[in-house]
Design a protein around this nucleic acid. Sequence first.
DNA 1: TTTGACATGTAAGCCGTTACATGATTTA
DNA 2: TAAATCATGTAACGGCTTACATGTCAAA
Lengths: 193, 193
Amino acid sequence: MARDSGLPATAYVVLGLVSIRPVAGYALMGFAERSIGNFFPLTRSHIYSELDRLRGLGFLASTEVAQENAPTKWVYEITSEGRDALQRWLDDTEVGEERWRNLFLVRIFFGDHMSTEQMTGLLDGYEAAARARRDHLAAVADWLADRPGSVFRRSTAMFGVHREQAKLDWVAEVRPMLLAAAASGLPAHCQGG
Amino acid sequence: MARDSGLPATAYVVLGLVSIRPVAGYALMGFAERSIGNFFPLTRSHIYSELDRLRGLGFLASTEVAQENAPTKWVYEITSEGRDALQRWLDDTEVGEERWRNLFLVRIFFGDHMSTEQMTGLLDGYEAAARARRDHLAAVADWLADRPGSVFRRSTAMFGVHREQAKLDWVAEVRPMLLAAAASGLPAHCQGG
DNA sequence: TTTGACATGTAAGCCGTTACATGATTTA
DNA sequence: TAAATCATGTAACGGCTTACATGTCAAA
């Protein structure tokens, strides 16, 4: 009787991705990046170790597949035990508060240590990155709009669009007051003494 | 010569909070929750260990303070070395891509495993939590609007307002299609066989 | 009398990242 | 000939969380 609880979320995410279709570790890396990379990034190293653990638990079965013009690969496939474990996790898991750590906002919070030039650079960089991600995700969502059966995936892309748009809206709203505040106060390391 | 690089971001965040005013570990817990909890949550255990490390590096100095009606506490204060290290970190640190893991979106992504009832419950819960956080952060931002010198802190609260509002907007936009998709497909565990 | 606020830590342990390591094939 | 893609792993390490542990005082 394989354990099915106590695994980290990452394990179930990998299990879920493999459940869509059999896949090798290397290919899974790209698939994960394109599908859930927007909200659940995975490293290559981590993928390999999770695949190995899931295989050890009997949730995945692996098959060696020889290829022409490429190294032999191990293709993983979900087992019925794995399907049960995944379903149970999806049913049982409470979606609690997430764990976000936003270093950009840390920088804003300690904004009195910055000059106006630094603040402008920070905001410009943030804005540019948000705009690029928004446009990319909007294109993905548009592309998915055509094909049926992609509602869930498309919805996650649209979440990203809203998320990045919110950042842009925020920058537009607070930029004037942040720059004014950065201009009014001397950098902290120039004060006192 | 104390090392000032290679410390995790959390260390500098704690250092930065103490730099605002001298504080004991327990009080810092509440202060962190109210000030940066919105985008950089800290656990009590972690706070204590970081304070200890920063003291060992000479970035913080600690003083024992006796109290009436309460246990003796250790109050931490930033040193000039600590101030230098903090400033250097704020200057040097590149604000790269953050690390977000959103289990809620994982659930949406695997939405074909859900019934319409489950989907409705998921969305309702998410919406309610987002609305509560938005309203709370909006109240915080309003409260901070009155007092001068709180621009940076207020801006981080407003970021949260935009962030939560984006979630609400997203739910409003995708709810119909998510429910339709959940209704059209049988739950995965009822298919085939 | 029991809950909650105040106050401070230790210990265990997984999670996850980064760096290390290798090698074939194709393309520029 | 150099870089990029395909392909798979190991090892070390720190970060961070969870659980364990203790004690006073005030208020309900």
